[in-house]
């Protein structure tokens, strides 16, 4: 009743050096499977045929770790809004469908194998300033820094980013503005983060540029595909803060 016959066209690429291509597989799935479970079934099938299984990243399978990195029919994490691939279920597709699965595409996210890409550029952006400089044990009492509920909530909305990279994958320019701005927005709005706000935005944007991401054309594809539905308002905020910090910071570099 719930079985579906599907044709999968999946990107296979041996390693970073080799050229990849789309391979076609037939698979029998159930509508109750998650997309990743469907790929598990494909892999079981490939192993039974003594072929190399498909490499794809996944871990928590509950919409939070940000490991999954595939583009399904042209959309990062597939057709459902506000969803990661692990939460996408096969009932979103129809019996007889052909599904094209590709890795996230961006020069700054080189393909490692099949659907696995290298997203360490994101770590380096955080390392460049995505933190508050406080050592363990230096903190004052939690309630000595009151933060109004709306500010805390807005900072939280930005902080929900799971670092999956769907924003970069969706962007025709492979821009990392949504990711970077979400962190800037999270920290710069909070009183704890204000002291370093100018230097933070300058450093993070500079690192983002160095990693080779494209520029933002305000296409808003990032917002449309973000599994946590993070708003492009954060990008505007980062633009504002960057322009302000560049013009008003006392430091010359």
């Amino acid at each position: 009743m719930s079985d579906m016959n599907l044709t999968l066209k999946v990107w296979r690429q041996k390693n970073n050096q080799s050229k990849g291509s789309l391979e076609t597989y037939k698979i029998l799935a159930s509508e109750h499977m998650s997309f990743l479970e469907m790929l598990d079934v494909l892999n079981e099938q490939l192993i039974q045929e003594k072929k190399e299984p498909l490499a794809f990243e996944h871990d928590c399978r509950e919409w939070i770790c940000g490991a999954c990195s595939m583009v399904i029919n042209g959309q990062p994490h597939g057709p459902q809004r506000g969803t990661t691939t692990c939460q996408l279920h096969m009932r979103q597709f129809k019996d007889g469908d052909t599904i094209v699965v590709e890795p996230f595409r961006a020069k700054a996210f080189p393909v490692i194998k099949d659907l696995v890409v290298d997203r360490s550029a994101f770590d380096r952006i955080i390392q460049s300033g995505g933190f508050i400089s406080v050592n363990t044990g230096q903190a004052v009492d939690g309630n000595s820094i009151p933060i109004d509920k709306d500010t805390a909530s807005a900072a939280f909305d930005a902080a929900t980013c799971i670092g999956c990279g769907a924003c970069v994958a969706a962007c025709p320019n492979a821009s990392a503005m949504l990711f970077t701005s979400a962190k800037v927005s999270h920290l710069n709005q909070l009183p704890q983060g204000k002291l370093e706000a100018k230097q933070r935005v300058l450093n993070m944007v500079s690192q983002m540029d160095e990693e080779g991401f494209g520029l933002c054309s305000n296409v808003t594809a990032c917002e449309a595909e973000c599994p946590k539905e993070i708003s492009v308002e954060n990008i505007a905020r980062m633009n504002r803060e960057y322009i302000g910090a560049s013009l008003t910071s006392d430091k010359f570099v």
Binding site: I132, A139, V140, A152
Partner: peptide, 14 residues
């Protein structure tokens, strides 16, 4: 205290 200082956005009252 440490988490608040790091900018963890805990739930807050009005």
């Amino acid at each position: 205290d440490q988490a608040v200082a790091q900018g963890v956005p805990f739930a807050r009252e009005y």
